[in-house]
Design a protein around this nucleic acid. Sequence first.
DNA 1: AAGTGCTATGTAAGCGCTTACATTCTGATT
DNA 2: AATCAGAATGTAAGCGCTTACATAGCACTT
Lengths: 350, 350
Amino acid sequence: MGRGGRERNGQAGARALDVAALAGVSTATVSRAFNAPEKVAPEIREKVLKAAAELGWMPHPAGAALASRRTWLAGALIPTLDNDVFASQVGALQTRLSAEGVTVLIGCSNYDADQAANQVRTMLARGVEALAVVGESHRPGLFETIAARGVPYVVTYSHRPGSPHPSVGFDNAAAFRRIARHLLDLGHRDFGLIHQPSIDNDRVVARIEGLRATLAEEGVALRPQHVREGPASIAFGRQSLRSIMEAPGPRPTAVVCGNDALAIGALIEARALGIRVPEDLSITGFDDVAMAEQTDPPLTTMRVDNAEIGQRAADYLLACLAGRQPPPPPPLESRLILRASTGAAARSAA
Amino acid sequence: MGRGGRERNGQAGARALDVAALAGVSTATVSRAFNAPEKVAPEIREKVLKAAAELGWMPHPAGAALASRRTWLAGALIPTLDNDVFASQVGALQTRLSAEGVTVLIGCSNYDADQAANQVRTMLARGVEALAVVGESHRPGLFETIAARGVPYVVTYSHRPGSPHPSVGFDNAAAFRRIARHLLDLGHRDFGLIHQPSIDNDRVVARIEGLRATLAEEGVALRPQHVREGPASIAFGRQSLRSIMEAPGPRPTAVVCGNDALAIGALIEARALGIRVPEDLSITGFDDVAMAEQTDPPLTTMRVDNAEIGQRAADYLLACLAGRQPPPPPPLESRLILRASTGAAARSAA
DNA sequence: AAGTGCTATGTAAGCGCTTACATTCTGATT
DNA sequence: AATCAGAATGTAAGCGCTTACATAGCACTT
């Protein structure tokens, strides 16, 4: 039988009806004054706005969402907020979307595919109208679920040629091919690799494959004893470099790292071990964090414009929401930043 | 006259009514099966859940919000996502809140008070039921606006004794008093200071005041030519240290930095200038970032557990939402991490 | 046998807004 | 003067859900 006794709670309790009454118009006009100002005569619009201001009224989003079937919500699925790379992507995405009145919901997967799937489910349940998700290695059916809802989405950060998904990012494999080529050109033939966990992480997998493929072109292979996989931390970089250099057999003359934190760790440990960089050993990073140009020697690394990824992803999704059928975005370029941590290969210690 | 021709859009178009029909119950029971399972007989609940699964139905949040007057939305206002300190706070806040079914909306002010006010307005309009905001120096009336809506809030990151707001954070002034005391104890009497922009930033202001106050106790004052204010970057730290050391008159024997990035920059520049740390100059940071223990020499700095701030803020807000009147949270401790960048004062060059 | 207190379910009235369609009013056209 | 197009506004029917209250069913009492 419903609640009966209306009893508005004194607080934030103005409704469109109250504004309409105060302005001497109907609720339809109130709504139009806010959502389609051009359809309301200027002086009436003025009156409505004044009445709304007086009552401190703003359209209640739940009511609006229900009636208009629009939520003005978008979602961003990222591995973690604790990584600059994703934080700045999301930041840019949000800035761009909020300028169009779209609020961004953030979901963190903590690099776990199940959590990712849950977050997406939650966002969908919340009614997001567009979704940006980092990477494309997710639980099977994830993208289908999204598409089945008719929600436009875009993969961010990585751009794999041949991927069935629209994506805004760069080609991770190509980026590492570029690094490999650079080192090969310097004469290196013995390589080490320190990288992040590759499970459920297509970016890391692509990088490793890009590296291996390019080395293979010159008949060079990575030796297992020169490869380390672990947390993307300075500490892991240090410990890995030490154990690689202590491994039996010939030492690598170049160590490729999955990101700058690992590379900085490697650099620090090399110094601690009395290994000269780049004379005895070349080291490369990835990301070009602020610290990379301040290390001694400064770090050769790849730069990617993460804010631009976020922004382009936002633009793409916005275009989809506007009903345009935008072309899949082109890949972004990553750029090799040559600094002093790489140099001509030392005579191999083999 | 309303839309008339119902015409459900094939897609995600199941309603509670459809589920009810399929399960052979009323919509009330469907609702209860989801929101108050204990009030529904187990076998009926089972049937409802199965029917919902079959139709791929989930409660539509706008309808739910409208009817229940609950949005299960909370907001977090931070300066920027581009800073680990805030990113991890938000991350922890979100993890905790989402475990209770609350979705977090993030607003970035970019250190601008007007943007902050706008973001808060937007979040309030979106119907957030609780708010965590970094710092307390905001546009006058901001907190009143929030409180007027009956929305519980908590100030994060800083905890100022005597503040009228509930806050989860540490006492920035006390933290810098601690640093000052440490350096005074080491015999320093000539200080430099490199800090972030202080406008609209109560944390930075409190730190500076804590430092000045403690120095004053020993009759020590900061000389204007030894103070620099600018972006919290490694580069600004470098350039500031150089210009401080080049300033006419006696050089400081200790330089206090507003955060680790500035301190790392100062450390790098000291090395470039041939100034020995800590023999000739002591340097301190703030935050204890991962890099701080890897610098040469490792950096003396203050550690704050940002994840814990986020988590406690979440717990406090959750308690408010549960209708409990939780006591204002106690301040957190920041901890001085003594490393090798600080040492006994050199004989003053005065 | 009738009454009592439970608990599990159903009924139906909104929540606050948008929007299709109806209505009114204007000024231009015939 | 009559007609009509077009613009501005009003009317009122939902959007999909929750929940106060009513009701039915059941196990005990007395």
